[in-house]
Design a protein around this nucleic acid. Structure first.
Length: 364
DNA sequence: ATCCGGAAGC
DNA sequence: GCTTCCGGAT
């Protein structure tokens, strides 16, 4: 099998088999003893699980509870949901938010009835194909309602795994799915998946995790070494947008690189001359000022199309500027004229590479 | 005021 | 791969 060549050594991140089975046993024991009583857990029919999972997308259990009961009273099964008008469905959804969920739920019901006599599909691919159902929800329905051995990964589970395995840096999304596949007990997928999510919601919470009462504390790598509430590393998220002025100064087909003066959030030894702006409006005047600082001459900046760039949860709007005339000299050290090809190799930050390309396209 | 989060559409 | 969709918790 070609899969053999995928990894030369077993990846260290996986729990060894003994730890993994201890983890499953303790987690399942805890879940069966401590799980919350929830309406969709009483009689987990596919329809009831489906509605609950759609409502629970981006929404906490406590918020969903009152809506769930009212919704199921009014739409107890797929035919009743399919026969209802969209506005009727939206009325019952009002207040829950993300109204696209309700529309897609309704669309899906209309696909299933009368075509499939209102019977919810059992096959994963068929479930996944329904509107509003992505990989997470399809896995959740198939595992919870049918006990099919399908992994699920949601925000709670990502956090539990990151702490359990003490994942420091970034990992690709597939990593979590691989881990869940490896941990999943084939005959208890329903309980196991719900237990992982329950642990994330009740014990392994984003803030102040209750490690003292965690059933799997003894196998948790984050607890073993340091403070689990520091894992995962928090990144400032909605941090205020940053505007960055970037200069593309050219001379005889070469571009001016700068070795210093970059804002702290841009990696790499070399970049383009740049400056953080207070706001987008000041871009042009700051560009003129910076050109004069570097070249000692008053040369008019030529605005190039701004673009967005995201690094480490910072939203940067880059305002590149060329210039009307080729500068003759540069003042001070830390600058170097480099031809474009070499410049691209030299510049480590993808932000500056993007700016270089933008400049080339615009003929700056 | 900031963090949190699945799916779809681009 | 980035945005948008929303309300609740803190």
């Amino acid at each position: 099998m070609k899969r053999l060549y995928f990894r030369e050594t077993p990846p260290a991140e996986y729990l060894d088999p003994r730890r993994a089975s201890a983890f499953r046993r303790r987690l399942l024991r805890w879940y069966l003893d401590n799980r919350r009583v929830l309406p969709w857990r009483d009689t987990p029919t596919p329809y009831r699980v489906w509605i609950s999972e759609i409502m629970l997308q981006q929404t906490q259990v406590g918020t969903v509870l009152p809506y769930y009961d009212r919704f199921l009273q009014r739409f107890p099964d797929i035919p009743s949901l399919a026969r209802a008008s969209e506005s009727d469905v939206l009325q019952r959804w009002a207040g829950l938010g993300y109204y696209g969920r309700a529309r897609r739920l309704h669309q899906a019901a209309r696909i299933l009835w009368p075509a499939r006599q209102g019977k919810f599909p059992e096959e994963y691919e068929a479930v996944l194909a329904l509107p509003g159902i992505g990989p997470y929800t399809a896995g959740a329905i198939c595992s919870i309602a049918y006990n099919q051995p399908r992994p699920v990964v949601d925000g709670n589970i990502r956090r539990v795994l990151v702490r359990l395995l003490r994942i420091g840096g970034k990992v690709r999304e597939g990593f979590f799915w691989d881990q869940m596949t490896a941990l999943l007990p084939p005959n208890q997928a329903s309980s196991f998946n719900q237990a992982m999510m329950e642990l994330g919601a009740m014990v392994c919470t984003p803030h102040r995790p209750q490690c003292g009462s965690c059933p799997v504390a003894r196998v948790c790598r984050a607890l073993e070494s340091g403070n689990p509430s520091r894992v995962p590393v928090k990144h400032p998220r909605g941090s205020r947008p940053v505007h960055l002025l970037v200069l593309l100064l050219e001379k005889e087909g070469r571009v001016l690189l700068a070795s210093s003066g970059k804002p702290g959030f841009i990696p790499g030894a070399w970049g383009l001359p740049c400056r953080v702006l207070a706001d987008a409006a000041s871009a042009e005047s700051e560009a003129a000022r910076l050109i004069r600082e570097i070249t000692g001459r008053a040369v008019s900046p030529v605005p190039l199309p701004p673009f967005r760039h995201a690094i480490t949860h910072r939203r940067i709007t880059v305002h590149p500027f060329g210039s009307t005339a080729e500068p003759t000299t540069v003042q001070g050290g830390g600058y170097q004229w480099v031809n474009r090809k070499r410049g691209k190799d030299r510049v480590l930050s993808s932000l500056f590479r993007k700016a270089l390309e933008a400049g080339a396209g615009a003929g700056a």
